[in-house]
C-alpha cells in the first residue's frame, strides 16, 4: 500500500476507534435507571447496575455488531457478490430453524447446545445457498441476492409454520428480532466465541482477499480453495447462529458496513477487516442507544431501529453507485 493510502487507512481507523470509545461510555450512561458516574464507587447499587446490566449490554452490542459485519464481509467474499449477508440469504433463517427444532425436541438443552445446533443448521443452510449461488451466471449479479431473498424467505416461512403449529410464535420473535434489553451478566458471554471467529478471520485475511479473486486465481497462488471455503462457512455460520441465539437477528449490518468500508478503503482485507469490525460495532451500538432514547423511558428493539437505519443506508448505497456491482 502506498504511503498516502496507508495514512488514509490509519486515519479512518482512528476515527472509527474513537467513535466507538465515545459510544461505549455513552451507552454505559443511558438507561431507565439512574446511574450517576460520580457516585459509581460510593453507591454499591450503581456499580452493580453497571456490572450486571449496562456493561454486558454494551459489550453484547459491540460483539454482535463486529461479528455480523465480519460475517457479512466473508459471506460476500464466498458468494463473490456484494449484495448478500447472513440475514438475507438463509443463514439466519436456518439458524432459527435449528434452534426451534432443538427447543421442540430437547427443551432442557443448554444455551451452548442450542447455539451448536443453530450453528450446524446455519452451516447446512448457507452451504446449500452457496452451492446454488455458484451455479448462477456471473453476468447476472443481482440473481444471487434475489435467490438469497427467496431462499431465506422459504426457510423463514417453514420456521414460522413450525413455530405456529407448536405454539412457539412468541419465542420466535426473540430470535428473529434483535433486542439487547434482555442482556444481563451471565447471558451474553457466548458472544465472545463470535469475537474469536473475528480474530480467526483477521488471521486469514490475506487468504480471504485471494479467495475474492476467484477459484482459479486462488489455486494458481497455491491456496487450498476448498478448505478456505469451509473455514469461511464456519465463521459465517457460528457468528450468525450466536447472534440469533443470544440477542436475535439484526438485519443490514453485514450488508452496509462492508460496502461502505470497501468504498473508503478498498478490499485488501488485511487492512480493512479491523475497520469493518469496529464500524459494525459502532452501527449496532449506535442503533441500540437510539432505540433506548427515542421513546424514553420505553425501548425500541435494536432490530427494528436497524431495519430503518440500515435500509436507508442501503438505499443510499444503491443509488450512489448504480453502475458498479
Amino acid at each position: 500500500m502506498s504511503i498516502a493510502a496507508t495514512k488514509q487507512a490509519s486515519k479512518t481507523g482512528w476515527v472509527a476507534g474513537l467513535t466507538l470509545a465515545v459510544l461505549f461510555v455513552f451507552s454505559l450512561c443511558v438507561g431507565v435507571d439512574d446511574m450517576p458516574i460520580i457516585r459509581l464507587f460510593s453507591d454499591g447499587r450503581a456499580l452493580e447496575l453497571l456490572l450486571v446490566s449496562r456493561l454486558p449490554r454494551t459489550l453484547a452490542a459491540i460483539l454482535t455488531g463486529a461479528g455480523l459485519a465480519i460475517a457479512g464481509l466473508i459471506m460476500q467474499t464466498l458468494a463473490r457478490n456484494r449484495y448478500v449477508e447472513p440475514s438475507t440469504a438463509g443463514t439466519a433463517q436456518s439458524a432459527e430453524l435449528g434452534i426451534l427444532l432443538v427447543t421442540l425436541l430437547l427443551p432442557s438443552a443448554s444455551l451452548l447446545f442450542k447455539s451448536l445446533a443453530a450453528s450446524a443448521a446455519a452451516l447446512l443452510g448457507t452451504s446449500l445457498f452457496l452451492m446454488t449461488a455458484h451455479r448462477l451466471p456471473p453476468t447476472q449479479p443481482f440473481l444471487v441476492p434475489l435467490f438469497g431473498l427467496v431462499y431465506g424467505g422459504v426457510i423463514g416461512a417453514a420456521v414460522t409454520f413450525v413455530a405456529w403449529q407448536a405454539d412457539l410464535l412468541q419465542y420466535l420473535s426473540v430470535w428473529t428480532n434483535g433486542d439487547f434489553s434482555g442482556v444481563l451478566r451471565g447471558r451474553y458471554e457466548l458472544l465472545w466465541l463470535g469475537a474469536l471467529m473475528v480474530v480467526v478471520a483477521w488471521m486469514v485475511a490475506d487468504r480471504l482477499t485471494i479467495m475474492a479473486l476467484g477459484r482459479d486465481a486462488s489455486i494458481g497462488l497455491g491456496l487450498d480453495h476448498a478448505r478456505m471455503l469451509q473455514l469461511g462457512l464456519i465463521i459465517v455460520s457460528v457468528i450468525s447462529a450466536l447472534s440469533v441465539v443470544v440477542v436475535g437477528m439484526i438485519p443490514f449490518v453485514g450488508l452496509v458496513v462492508p460496502n461502505i468500508v470497501s468504498r473508503l478503503m478498498g478490499d485488501n482485507m488485511r487492512g480493512t477487516l479491523p475497520t469493518v469490525a469496529v464500524s459494525g460495532a459502532i452501527l449496532v451500538l449506535g442503533c441500540d442507544i437510539l432505540g433506548r432514547l427515542i421513546r424514553y423511558p420505553y425501548e425500541i428493539p435494536v432490530g427494528t431501529v436497524m431495519g430503518c437505519v440500515g435500509g436507508l443506508i442501503f438505499l443510499w448505497l444503491l443509488f450512489r453507485r448504480p453502475s458498479h456491482v
Binding site: 502506498s2 463473490r80 475474492a212 486465481a217 478490499d267 485488501n268
Partner: peptide, 9 residues
C-alpha cells in the same frame, strides 16, 4: 476470463 471484482490497488 480473469475478472477482478475486488477493489484492490
Amino acid at each position: 476470463d480473469s475478472i477482478v471484482t475486488s477493489r484492490l490497488r
